[in-house]
């Protein structure tokens, strides 16, 4: 049965990720597929927010996993698999973008791409409905504090538990939770305004 990650001492997802990592090292191809599925959408979101390019994002993720597989014999243990994958995808995406000679402004966010995660451009506009959605999203983002964005990034992208976030920020456990909930509540309200 699932349970709230916040209540756990240990981050179950990290443990499972590390088990999959070991299986890759031990030459088990199915572990790649499982790990891929587990993180795909988060990595894709991240790649897309950097590049605004669907194909480039997909290829970056693909290349990172191919690299892992081809170098499985020499892989080192990593403490946080999700974090490692996010960094790798970011590097790939940036490399491809540079090839395309496009100007990007992410240098400031090298290690903490908070603004990036909430970039308004991340909504592809296909129809009138999306225009409205994008406006709503912009509104929601403008109402979030920098702290809230930072915590959303750590919780939803890095996949950290409130416990772990407590360690890297100076915030208390309960305060971490409160900030995140407040942000979620703001987003919800903006989207459900009549």
């Amino acid at each position: 049965m699932p349970k709230s990650q916040g209540e756990l001492e240990e981050n179950q997802n990290h443990i499972e990720d590390n088990q999959l990592w070991q299986r890759i090292i031990q030459n088990d191809p199915s572990a790649i597929s499982i790990l891929y599925k587990r993180h795909f959408q988060v990595l894709y979101s991240f790649g897309f927010k950097i590049s605004q390019d669907e194909e480039l994002s997909k290829d970056s993720i693909h290349d990172v996993f191919i690299y892992l597989w081809e170098h499985r014999e020499n892989l080192h243990d990593v403490r946080n698999v999700r974090s490692y994958l996010l960094k790798s995808v970011k590097n790939r995406a940036l490399k491809s973008l540079n090839k395309q000679i496009r100007t990007i402004h992410i240098d400031n966010h090298e290690d903490f791409p908070v603004e990036l995660v909430f970039s308004e451009e991340s909504y592809m506009i296909k129809n009138q409905e999306d225009v409205k959605l994008k406006e709503r999203l912009n509104e929601a983002i403008s109402q979030l504090t920098k702290r809230q964005k930072e915590l959303i990034y750590l919780y939803y992208y890095e996949g950290m538990t409130p416990m772990e976030i407590q360690e890297v920020t100076s915030l208390q456990y309960q305060s971490v939770k409160n900030h995140i909930f407040k942000a979620l509540s703001t987003i919800r309200k903006v989207f459900n305004k009549k």
Partner: peptide, 17 residues
């Protein structure tokens, strides 16, 4: 929070890897 890809496209990416 996320810019997620539709399920069908995600599946073909998984098939590809």
């Amino acid at each position: 929070i996320y810019a997620r890809l539709p399920q069908g496209k995600m599946d073909s990416e998984i098939n590809r890897i």
